[in-house]
Design a protein around this nucleic acid. Structure first.
Lengths: 112, 112
DNA sequence: TCGTTGTACATAGATAATCTATGTAACTTA
DNA sequence: TAAGTTACATAGATTATCTATGTACAACGA
């Protein structure tokens, strides 16, 4: 299964927001979570994730905090903001709508 | 309902391919068809569509032919190629997979 | 016959985004 | 101590969208 670039691009923001709505997390762990929920189908490179996280933070959809974990690890923890939750809700609705449109289109004349 | 740019971008190619799989069509009519299948939710500007059509043709997923309609209209008709049908099939599978991943993610912790 | 609206295609240029490659550094484990 | 993993960051190339603008003809009403 190869996901097209635009499809990955369309999913990245709502996916990150949804993962952070599960609870506070950090870059490296988000990548693992993506692999997990996709059943190994998606592999995000870290160089892909961090710029997206920075953009989301700039837009105030998420916020970050440097913290020391118990093992002594220095990590940047991200959490979703109220604005982020609202945005996620909207993006979720848009996704479902778009999916319905695509399914309708395909059902008329299913791909052979 | 406002669709995000990336979501529109992700849908444009499979949508055009699916519309052309219904039968030969041309730019202006494709825009109307998009409006129709989306229940008026999507409005494509012509300046958005034509570059995508040109790209798809360059990739040999569709092919074009200038024709004179009965009313005397000069139109560029597009039809899907075999390669285009295969690509549509793959993109459809990828879309369905991605949708499943998103639904799984959202079901774990539904957006409030 | 003139102006407006609709049909029909095209592209330039600004903007925005991804994605690869690369760099840094600390911790873990063999 | 070497290799692998964890962890974050950014530069630069590439790619794509999207707005604005241009052309042209048909249809229709005033």
């Amino acid at each position: 299964m190869a996901f097209s670039k635009p499809l990955v691009a369309a999913s990245s923001r709502p996916m990150i927001l949804a993962i952070l709505q599960e609870g506070t997390s950090y870059g490296y762990k988000i990548i693992q979570r993506v692999r997990e929920i996709s059943g190994g189908q998606m592999e995000w490179a870290d160089g892909m994730l961090y710029p997206v996280l920075h953009r989301l933070e700039k837009e105030k959809l998420i916020q970050s905090q440097w913290m020391q974990s118990e093992e002594g690890r220095h990590r940047k923890y991200y959490s979703i903001t109220e604005l982020g939750k609202e945005t996620l809700h909207q993006e979720k609705e848009a996704w479902i709508s778009m999916n319905q449109i695509m399914l309708n289109l395909w059902d008329l004349k299913p791909a052979k």
